[in-house]
Design a protein around this nucleic acid. Structure first.
Lengths: 195, 195
DNA sequence: CAATGTATATTCACTGTACGGTATACATGA
DNA sequence: TCATGTATACCGTACAGTGAATATACATTG
């Protein structure tokens, strides 16, 4: 799992990621993944024990890139911490404009696996969300939020995941702007007054 | 659709609701619904054209009850508007304690149908969420939020749906308390200062 | 009243297909 | 020759949906 993947494994995971993210894990068959990867199903099963393994690999591959994107967006935004957090929501709003945008793969997978809380994909989903939350928490703590940092980090996570869900249903990215404003208000309320 | 359902139709929809809500629409077969309803599959297909029709009926039946619950919780909570909104999140937190709690059927169904935006169930999901949002909006407007009412209503919806998603993944209802605090802060910020 | 017709409601048994996963054999290079 | 990798063909199952027959209810008509 932690070894360097062969080119074939890589192609399979990439194909799985495209299809799973586009249509959901239950709607995509193993045959479809093999076809997309240009590989026979038997080859796929040589490299992955089961479809569940493939799902786990799919999410594994999205963990770091997702977090990095948030961090990049935060760093690139001008202004104070509150503005920078708001900047993340702004970038998310831009991304959601594309008709192919499909929300958060971790959340969507967790919905499809709602009755298998111990599924490796669920474990990875929780770990990913916790990483993001911890990063928000440390950012807020460095900005001087004190003991409020962890609460506000949780509130930001709720707003973030709320955006994914609401916009996936309504296809109305403007919710993200409203959520960004909310996040900025909450961050400011947690920081010591400026002057 | 608007006619009084026969007892058999009612039993089928109720069985479908239980199973769909417990496990998701894709994980539950029509055979399973028929079995749960104590009816042959062929009888089920006499009353409903397809599984999609059944899914739509399932969500149709959750629209008004869901909204009414929010309104009841709001009315029952003490304090000003901000406190009452927070009261909704508190009740939600209580509900999420039960191990059988499975989040919001509308959101979860929308995830499972992500590639069929025109599906009747998606249409009903959007309509339901809009009804809830409109109700929040009118409540805020009556409290004197002015033009901010619609923005804050959207922020509350994002927090609400964020709770459903986050808690379904983490199984940690405390996120709802944090979200309730956030909602109260946002509502207060939108109202004219007391004195 | 009895025989008949008709719409509603229900059942058993079935079809076609798509799916996750596998048995087995073949190829290739160290 | 042995490990790695790929391919063809297949298995058993589960699923959405259907065909054709049957039962019940109730009205129409001789």
């Amino acid at each position: 799992m932690s070894e360097t993947p062969t080119p074939t494994q890589d192609r399979i995971v990439k194909a799985a990621s495209r299809l799973f993210h586009a249509s959901g894990i239950r709607a995509v068959s193993v045959d479809a993944v093999a076809l997309e990867a240009g590989v026979t199903k038997r080859t796929l099963y040589y490299h992955f024990r089961s479809k569940d393994d493939l799902i786990a690999a799919y999410l594994e591959g999205r963990d770091q890139p997702n977090l990095s994107a948030f961090q990049r967006w935060f760093d690139a935004a001008p202004g104070d911490v509150a503005d920078k957090v708001k900047g993340i929501f702004h970038k998310l709003e831009e991304a959601a404009q594309h008709p192919h945008w499909k929300g958060c793969g971790f959340l969507r997978t967790s919905v499809e696996l709602v009755n298998q809380p111990g599924h490796p994909a669920m474990v990875r989903g929780r770990a990913h969300k916790m990483r993001v939350e911890s990063w928000f928490c440390s950012v807020l703590a460095e900005a001087g939020a004190g003991p409020q940092a962890s609460v506000v980090a949780r509130q930001i996570m709720v707003l973030l995941d709320g955006c994914f869900s609401v916009v996936l249903l309504h296809r109305e990215p403007a919710y993200m702007a409203a959520a960004g404003d909310a996040a900025a208000i909450l961050v400011r309320a947690s920081l010591p007054t400026k002057r």
